[in-house]
Nucleic acid binder design. Structure first.
Length: 282
DNA sequence: AAGCCGATCAACCGCAATGTT
DNA sequence: CAACATTGCGGTTGATCGGCT
């Protein structure tokens, strides 16, 4: 079936709308209603295609459009709905009075998506992804704290211990000149010499490349080296790095229940009652 | 002052779904 | 029921703006 062009390309204006064009469109729709979008431009004296008129009306000129910044509540609603519906912008917009699908889509792509990525959340699946989290800055700040141990304790209550444990092992690889309290530097830079693993390791890596249970012992030993052994319990047999790292960047959307389950497994976003925010103000 | 660059968002494009003849 | 018309939707583009050098 051949697709007819949405409008006659000849003599049809494109690009930004002028105030005069807006007024013509508003006046016409106030008087006659939108009716047939294809014939509307001609009847309204506009040199635009019907599609352009419809878009201009629904996304900008409609009187019930709420303009201005998105409130925190609106953003939270968008995130929740997106976790269930995915990129169904029109369906999301239907639940946010006064907001258009285009506006929500733009806001998602320019603000919310980036915010989620910074928080280590995959904006597609809404599940945490370690490789999206900016761990280097997070942990550099952590390790540079004079009261490092106390801060680590707080961090461990906020983050899944496995994540914090792993991140503290990876940090020296990301920052060649970290500033550690006391003698931590030397310990952190020391390659894992106790491992008898026959598995070949990357030349510069001090972290085992094989994360199976057999590798947990040296990793736990390093927790002790960096002074985190008291704060974090040792890696458990159930620790599974692969599952932590394997969520694909643009995997098909998980159902909301599964996504929620993942969230509660990897990150604990609940704030403990004794949490002191000032401790994190570097 | 000028140029560059990243962020923002209005508008466009193409496809799919739905409606009409 | 097929053919065509219309509408709706989501991805993408490009103009504009503000901050920075």
């Amino acid at each position: 079936m051949g697709r007819s062009p949405c409008c006659d390309k000849n003599g049809v204006k494109k690009g930004p709308w002028t105030a005069e064009e807006d007024q013509k469109l508003i006046d016409y729709i106030r008087f006659h209603g939108p009716g047939n979008w294809r014939t509307l431009p001609k009847n309204a004296g506009l040199h635009r295609c019907g599609k352009s008129c419809r878009l201009r009306w629904t996304n900008y000129l409609r009187p019930d459009i709420k303009r201005g910044r998105f409130s925190f509540e609106e953003e939270e609603t968008i995130i929740q709905l997106h976790s269930v519906m995915g990129n169904k912008w029109s369906a999301i917009a239907a639940r946010l009075p006064g907001r258009t699908d285009n506006e929500i889509k733009n806001h998602w792509n320019t603000h919310i998506r980036k915010r989620l990525v910074r928080s280590g959340i995959d904006p597609v699946t809404h599940s945490p992804r370690l490789d999206l989290l900016d761990l280097s800055s997070l942990l550099s700040a952590l390790f540079n704290q004079p009261n490092f141990s106390a801060v680590a304790t707080h961090a461990s209550s906020l983050l899944n211990p496995d994540v914090l444990r792993l991140a503290s092992l990876l940090l020296p690889l990301q920052n060649p000149n970290p500033v550690y309290p006391s003698n931590l530097d030397q310990n952190l830079q020391t390659p894992n010499t106790s491992s008898e693993s026959s598995q070949p390791q990357a030349e510069t890596s001090t972290v085992p490349t094989n994360y199976e249970t057999s590798s947990l012992e040296p990793m736990n030993a390093r927790l002790d080296d960096v002074g985190l052994a008291d704060v974090l319990p040792p890696l458990s047999e159930s620790f599974d790095l692969d599952s932590l790292m394997s969520t694909p960047m643009s995997s098909p959307r998980q159902n909301s229940i599964e996504a929620e389950t993942n969230s509660s497994t990897f990150f604990d976003f609940g704030i403990p009652e004794d949490f002191i925010l000032d401790d994190f103000m570097f």
